[in-house]
């Protein structure tokens, strides 16, 4: 019941929002409708029914930030020539890529649990959707980055080209943005002002 009133509350807020055109308003409306449906599913209610599930899953999500972000940072710092320069890039990639990918899988699983548990908290924010877009870019980018590193390492250059270094910096900045947006979900109105559907 609480969930449903939340959805209607959100719709009411959207009705008064001046930032969005009719089409965007309709999109926010269907999103909150879906959130309301998800909120009422047995999966969602069972996640919410035990008080420690959400903080527990969030804790695992944060632990995985440590694993994924640091693994990515290690690879990036190697390409930039800052760290592990005694090892070939291929070796550094082989050392950290499995941790990065498995960490991302755990993040996706815990993230989806959080979305099912609290769909309105996630779907009703600008931060969440922006984060998802950046995650999609980040995962695709990392896969492409890994492939290009392998082919670059095959030529065994002593120093990586500027493009590879720029890509390393970009991918680290991208994950930083994802981490900040993750925290911003709880503060959507404060961070995005009138752009937030909560405004």
């Amino acid at each position: 019941m609480l969930g449903l009133s939340g959805v209607f509350g959100l719709n009411g807020a959207l009705g008064s929002g001046a930032m969005y055109g009719a089409g965007a308003m309709h999109a926010w409306g269907s999103v909150s409708g879906f959130a309301g449906w998800l909120e009422a599913t047995p999966a969602s209610t069972s996640i919410k029914s035990v008080s420690w599930v959400i903080p527990f899953v969030q804790s695992i999500h944060i632990l995985m930030i440590g694993v994924v972000f640091i693994s990515c940072l290690m690879i990036a710092l190697r390409v930039l020539g800052v760290m592990r320069t005694d090892e070939p890039v291929e070796g550094v990639w082989r050392r950290f890529a499995p941790w990065m990918w498995s960490g991302l899988v755990v993040m996706a699983a815990t993230g989806m649990t959080l979305v099912v548990g609290e769909p309105e908290r996630e779907f009703g924010t600008v931060s969440f959707w922006l984060k998802m877009a950046l995650v999609a870019i980040g995962v695709t980018g990392t896969a492409l980055y890994g492939r290009s590193l392998k082919s670059a390492a095959a030529g065994a250059p002593a120093v990586f080209p500027v493009s590879a270094k720029a890509a390393s910096v970009l991918i680290v900045i991208l994950w930083l943005a994802v981490i900040f947006l993750g925290r911003a979900i709880a503060y959507d109105k404060q961070v995005w002002g009138a752009l937030s559907p909560h405004a």
Binding site: I65, F69, I70, I179, F180, G182, R183, A184, V191
Partner: peptide, 16 residues
């Protein structure tokens, strides 16, 4: 939110 995000990021970095 910025301070909290920095705390999460730095904490995760310490852990990693």
């Amino acid at each position: 939110p910025v301070i909290e995000a920095i705390h999460v990021l730095a904490g995760a970095t310490v852990f990693g």
